[in-house]
Amino acid sequence: MNRHHLNRVAASCMIWASLTLPSMSQAQNKCEGSLTDFDAVYCYQKVFLQADKDLNTVYGKLMSALPGSAKNTLKTLQRTWIKDRDASSVIDRDGFKYVSVGRATQMTVTRVNELNDRLRECLSSGCRVALLR
């Protein structure tokens, strides 16, 4: 399965999820206690989506705080990081590709923390561009 096909499959899954999630049971809105496999996937997805939202928020704030030349540096670094996260989160097993939402979430939360550290630094004592990674 090529990358283009995987992107189409992922996009169609996300479209399906956005159309069907509002009609799912009330139990799925509570990610606690004993969960079915499908409920667990839904809950993991919710956590990932929140981490991704947090990442976009802190990235935007940091971009605003950085001096001009550092903005291009962060943009390049972030694009590389996204490619690495995505590649690290795909598992190839028995001819099938799986996405580890847990791995993607863990990496995203770590990145949010890294960018928050740089943002706090910029706001308090000045941006140290050399610390961007």
Rank of each mutant, 00 (worst) to 15 (best):
F48M: 09
V101K: 05
D86H: 11
L66V: 10
Q78P: 04
Y59L: 08
A27Y: 08
V9D: 09
V58C: 07
M107W: 08
R118N: 03
D84K: 15
W16C: 05
E114P: 00
A65N: 05
A27C: 09
S64K: 10
D37W: 10
C122W: 04
D117H: 09
A104I: 02
Q78G: 03
D84F: 01
L123T: 07
T105R: 01
S69G: 14
D39G: 12
L132P: 00
K53A: 08
I91Y: 06
G95H: 06
L49D: 14
A51V: 05
K71L: 03
L21D: 15
Q50C: 05
A65Y: 12
S88W: 11
W81S: 04
A11D: 13
S12R: 11
F48T: 04
V47W: 00
K71M: 06
D84R: 13
L77Q: 12
R93E: 09
R8E: 13
A104Y: 08
K61L: 07
T36N: 03
A70C: 09
L77A: 12
G95Y: 03
M24Q: 15
A11E: 13
A11I: 02
R120Y: 00
K30Q: 13
H5C: 14
T108G: 09
S18E: 09
A87T: 15
A40D: 12
R128N: 05
K97Y: 15
V58R: 01
L62K: 07
K61N: 12
A10I: 15
N2K: 10
D117P: 00
M14A: 10
A10C: 09
R111G: 04
K46S: 08
L55T: 02
G126H: 02
S25N: 14
K46R: 08
G33V: 05
D86T: 15
R133G: 04
K61P: 00
S124I: 11
C13R: 15
K61M: 08
V9W: 06
L74Q: 06
L119C: 07
K71W: 07
I91K: 06
Q45S: 07
R93N: 09
W81E: 07
S34F: 13
F38G: 02
S69K: 08
G60I: 04
K83T: 13
K71F: 02
G33M: 04
R133V: 00
D37G: 03
A27L: 09
S18K: 12
R3I: 14
Q28G: 14
R8F: 03
V101L: 11
Y98Q: 06
K61G: 00
R79T: 07
R128H: 10
R118D: 03
N56T: 08
Y98R: 06
K71C: 04
D92G: 11
R118Q: 11
L131F: 06
A51R: 10
D117C: 00
C122I: 03
